[in-house]
Amino acid sequence: MMPGLVRAILAVLVAALLSPAAMAHKLREQGVAVTIADSPLTVTPGRDWNRLDGNIGKRTENWTLDGGQLNDLTFFAGIEPGKPLVRERSKKREPLPRFGASTLLVEIPELFEATYRSAKQIADFRVTDVQPIRFLGQEGVMFAFEYVDGDELTRKGEAQAAIVGGRLYMISFDAPRLHYFARTVEDYRKIVASARLP
């Protein structure tokens, strides 16, 4: 009985002591290599960024400069076959499309679009460009997109993806078309260029 009680008390204390720290956003310093979402993926940012507290999926991380509304950098660090890109609110009522073992690189923009449309409940999303590229030392795909979110603001975005060892690695960036996208897109591209897998 006692050890169980002591463990419970300690658990409450640890949770209480850790919660404010755990809730804080974390600094990602210029020039310091960091691993993403406990995966083998590392990046070295070319300027200071903020890693937002919380995540939208088990293998994702969100970074920003001014807030998710104004610049949203999302890492998808090794999505396994059979899994959606982000966590589903309800598997039954609002299922999200899944990355599959047979998903091809050229299908990634479509998967991304379908995920955005469902997860953000938006009607207006356009892929504006798709190009083959090298990403993480592999054949990859780059695509650009534009969409209007629930706040009626038009946002532009760009993503680069590759399938490595059967898992999907992707880094996306989006920001309001006015002012914010052009101001930060080069910082995003530097992060993409620094991305490494062992």
């Binding site: 804080a24 600094l27 400069l65 509304q69 104004l70």
Partner: peptide, 22 residues
């Protein structure tokens, strides 16, 4: 855009405990 900037200011500056490290 003004709506989005205002939301970001409230969320990440006016809520003092939620400020961004940078």
């Amino acid at each position: 855009l003004f709506g989005a900037v205002s939301d970001a200011v409230v969320q990440y500056q006016f809520f003092v405990g939620n400020r961004l490290p940078t």
